[in-house]
């Protein structure tokens, strides 16, 4: 078992949670303030994910970009791959917040959705 310090990012407090882990199991030693922190630290130590936000080119919109997010957290090692898909994409105005712009990106079961509405020019 190796010890790892995980900085919790669920809330702005940023607890430093000490965990012990091997390949498939993980136990919490100290440093958490809430239940969410326990869950986060275990996931972070074994299978880290990140919410991904970026923007996509809008054609014929009042603004040249629409902000987007992943519908679910993306595995950390897939982030750059997903970002490259986002860079290639574009969307025609109007765009509505919540609209799926890329469906099932890289077959991860995750959609890339608009977080802003952009009117047509």
């Amino acid at each position: 078992m190796i010890e790892q310090e995980v900085t919790c990012i669920i809330c702005p407090i940023g607890c430093k949670i000490l965990v012990k882990k091997d390949n498939s199991t993980c136990e919490i030693i100290d440093g958490f303030k809430c239940k969410k922190g326990i869950e986060y630290a275990i996931n972070e130590a074994l299978d880290p994910h990140r919410m991904l936000t970026s923007s996509i080119i809008v054609i014929n919109g009042k603004w040249p970009l629409v902000s987007v997010k992943s519908s679910k957290p993306v595995p950390k090692n897939k982030i750059i791959g997903v970002i490259n898909q986002i860079k290639k994409a574009n969307v025609k105005a109007p765009v509505t917040s919540g609209q799926k712009i890329i469906k099932n990106v890289l077959d991860l079961g995750i959609d890339i959705i608009a977080t802003k509405s952009i009117e047509k020019l």
């Binding site: 900085t7 990012i9 702005p12």
Partner: peptide, 8 residues
């Protein structure tokens, strides 16, 4: 900045 931003 906030710890979560330094990490992420």
């Amino acid at each position: 900045g906030l710890p979560r931003n330094i990490v992420q």
